[in-house]
């Protein structure tokens, strides 16, 4: 199966795509990361899993639609960035799981990551308690990057505008759950600065 075909499977949420990629490059990636960066085998597997998750997210965001390199080069590129990030953070002696790299990826270029990391766990837990259709709707929009037109069709709303209004309500519900329980001092209120 060619790279564009695999990318297409992933984008269409056909789970065969991601599992195919996972099994295809697993051995080579893990051997390469151990050999190149002297990583512990268990850590190498965590790097690999985080890299595949990031690859998935980038695919869903359409970043691989006009991929110039091969899928393998792209995946190994993600792995290299994670390994360098790890070296920079000097956490080599400390065991860090795939969650650590995924959090850093989600919090891209943000300062004060330690505080935000705690928040991500709290928000993620609160999000899982959110009822339907809010859980599904917000997940489709912010995680699966679906358009309001697609969401409206999937969840059976009258039109995209109705889905959009529902999204506002759902976000407010989540905001109340999260920040109703989270003390302001546990999240940063530093003035926003555009990069």
């Amino acid at each position: 199966m060619s790279d564009p075909e695999i990318i297409n499977l992933i984008r269409n949420e056909d789970s065969r795509g991601l599992s195919m990629v996972y099994e295809k490059f697993r051995n080579e990636f893990i051997h390469w990361i151990i050999k190149t960066y002297g990583t512990d085998p268990d850590d190498a597997r965590e790097f690999y899993q985080a890299s595949i998750v990031i690859l998935y997210d980038n695919t869903m965001a359409g970043k691989l639609d006009s991929l110039q390199s091969s899928l393998k080069t792209y995946l190994f590129g993600i792995g290299k960035n994670l390994a360098l990030q790890q070296l920079r953070l000097n956490h080599r002696k400390q065991k860090t799981g795939a969650e650590f790299y995924i959090k850093n990826y989600v919090l891209d270029n943000q300062e004060d990551k330690m505080k935000e990391e705690v928040n991500l766990e709290i928000i993620s837990q609160s999000f899982s308690t959110l009822g339907e259709p809010c859980h599904e709707l917000l997940s489709l929009y912010y995680y699966k990057k679906k358009s309001m037109e697609e969401i409206s069709a999937t969840l059976g709303y009258k039109n995209p505008e109705t889905a959009k209004n529902q999204k506002y309500k759902c976000m407010e519900r989540l905001r109340k759950i999260v920040f109703g329980t989270l003390h302001p001092s546990t999240y940063s209120t530093e003035p926003f600065t555009e990069e």
Partner: peptide, 10 residues
Amino acid sequence: MLVQGIRYSG
């Protein structure tokens, strides 16, 4: 943060 938390959850 909410958007990041939703993405992280997925």
